[in-house]
């Protein structure tokens, strides 16, 4: 392997450390913007823009750490950090500087890391037991009750099972939509996809790109577990699902993970469908990218304000239809384009 020259090395360093720092500071604004838009739809003044993101994270960092009730506390507590690391990697692999290194600047790496993040929820759910469900001191299995020796699941366990199902059904639209630009450009390298859309020749302005963007949007909502696809952590029956027992700094890391997922998923969208890459050395492109990153959260906020939680009765057909639409668009693009 030939040693890269100083300029390339500097570029890689800036991409590896500067971009994630920028991503983290920008992403903690996104939950606040989402909440504010939802509040305005609900005809009220919501919390301040910095509150659900920055100040909530800081507040949790300053709380005292309680004893987490879990069979494997260390794994449970550090799972969100694994998710944060996965998103860190997604963001740096999107930069053009990482294009040639070990083949990591490609779609395969991005998809794999997103899968890791989805899997974090499943792991967390099996490892926690909050006071709110099984451990509440109540004589449930007293004489005279129905089924006194039933096997009991905590709310988090059930959230995990649902997250498994979400991975099976509702992550497909996201991945199928991500392959439409690949079909267009005939390459899985991100730099190639970006270069093929140079000069505002964006994929989203073409029909297959627009369809792919719609399917990606559905997949984005499912990835974030926002309404209407929030069955995995349904507030109506599971309170919060796998994240119930997280407290203090570990909850802060979960909030950070969620904000970063929001940013990373939007960043992938902007890179693939608009061709604006996350290039630390090109100021114009960076600013365009950061502005376009706001599109998906804003539309997501409006959709989530107007929808209830959909159960698997509705989620499975919806995801299947979205996947099929994406798949046919992919096939047609491969055939025609």
């Amino acid at each position: 392997m030939d040693i890269p020259d100083a300029e390339t090395l500097a570029g890689i360093l800036v991409a590896s450390f500067g971009i994630p720092m920028l991503a983290m500071s920008y992403s903690i604004l996104l939950p606040g913007i989402v909440r504010k838009i939802q509040a305005r739809v609900q005809q009220r003044i919501g919390p301040g823009i910095l509150t659900p993101g920055l100040f909530a994270i800081l507040k949790f960092v300053f709380k005292h750490k309680p004893v987490i009730s879990s069979p494997m506390p260390t794994l449970y507590k550090w799972s969100p950090a694994v998710g944060v690391a996965a998103m860190y990697c997604v963001v740096i692999f999107l930069t053009p500087q990482w294009a040639g290194i070990l083949g990591l600047g490609s779609m395969v790496a991005i998809i794999g890391l997103l899968k890791v993040e989805e899997f974090v929820y499943v792991v967390m759910g099996y490892l926690s037991s909050n006071i709110l469900s099984v451990r509440l001191p109540y004589p449930d299995t007293a004489k005279g009750s129905k089924w006194p020796d039933a096997r009991r699941s905590t709310l988090e366990n059930w959230g995990s099972v649902r997250m498994w199902k979400m991975i099976v059904f509702s992550s497909l639209p996201l991945y199928v939509a991500m392959f439409i630009p690949v079909a267009f450009t005939r390459s899985i390298s991100i730099v190639d996809i970006v270069n093929s859309q140079a000069g505002w020749n964006c994929l989203i302005f073409r029909v297959p790109g627009a369809i792919g963007a719609g399917v990606y949007f559905l997949g984005y909502i499912a990835l974030l577990n926002d309404y209407p696809f929030s069955i995995g952590k349904a507030k109506a029956d599971l309170v919060e699902g796998p994240m119930l027992e997280l407290a203090s700094s570990w909850r802060a890391s979960y909030y950070l993970m969620r904000a970063l997922v929001m940013f990373a998923a939007s960043s992938i969208f902007v890179t693939l469908f608009f061709g604006a890459s996350l290039d630390p050395l090109d100021g114009y492109r960076l600013i365009v990218h950061l502005l376009l990153v706001l599109i998906l959260p804003i539309f997501g906020a409006i959709l989530s304000a107007f929808s209830p939680i959909l159960t698997f009765r509705q989620v499975v057909p919806l995801s299947t239809i979205a996947t099929l639409i994406g798949f046919f668009t992919f096939v047609i693009t491969v055939g025609v384009g």
């Binding site: 009220r44 919390p47 909050n130 919060e240």
Partner: peptide, 21 residues
Amino acid sequence: SPIHDLEQYNVMLTWNPREAD
């Protein structure tokens, strides 16, 4: 109630004791 709206004072309702102040 949007008329009273506790969230505008940066106070958010939660149902999880691990998250509450």
